[in-house]
């Protein structure tokens, strides 16, 4: 819609009758006098020089920082998952070794009185469970 069409749409009978003269007036030569007076009364200010166009480095810097941040997060995740995998492998070897040792030496350990009644019951339950699960 053109500016003229909008103006036509906004027409008001009352406003048309009154017209656009508000009846406000200013003293003769007011603006010339004001401009001179205003310019003369401006206090001293310090103007900081503004760079019109930021340098390439200033423009690119935030994107580089963001890219570095994502790269850092990715590296940390990579290191963390790799470390976790190593740990779990070592743990598994250790657990297997402990299991074999326990299986071989459990009877000897129990007989020597090194285990409490509760330990013995738990051990027997686990042996029974293993037996049930085995096909």
């Amino acid at each position: 819609m053109s500016q003229t069409d909008v103006m036509k749409q906004e027409k008001s009978e009352i406003l048309d009758r009154i017209g656009k003269d508000s009846g406000f007036k200013t003293p003769e030569g007011y603006f010339d006098e004001f401009n001179s007076r205003m310019t003369a009364m401006l206090p001293d200010v310090e103007i900081t020089k503004v760079d019109e166009k930021p340098s390439l480095w200033v423009t690119v810097r935030p994107y580089l920082y963001m890219a570095a941040m994502f790269a850092g997060v990715w590296c940390m995740m990579k290191v963390f998952t790799g470390f976790k995998q190593n740990i779990s492998t070592e743990q598994r070897v250790s657990e297997i070794a402990t299991g074999i040792y326990m299986d071989n030496n459990a009877d000897e350990f129990i007989m020597s009185g090194g285990a409490s009644d509760y330990d013995i019951m738990t051990y027997e339950d686990s042996v029974m469970m293993d037996t049930e699960i085995e096909p």
Partner: peptide, 9 residues
């Protein structure tokens, strides 16, 4: 500094 008529007021 106002010389409008009644309707302008």
């Amino acid at each position: 500094w106002f010389d409008g008529d009644e309707i302008q007021v």
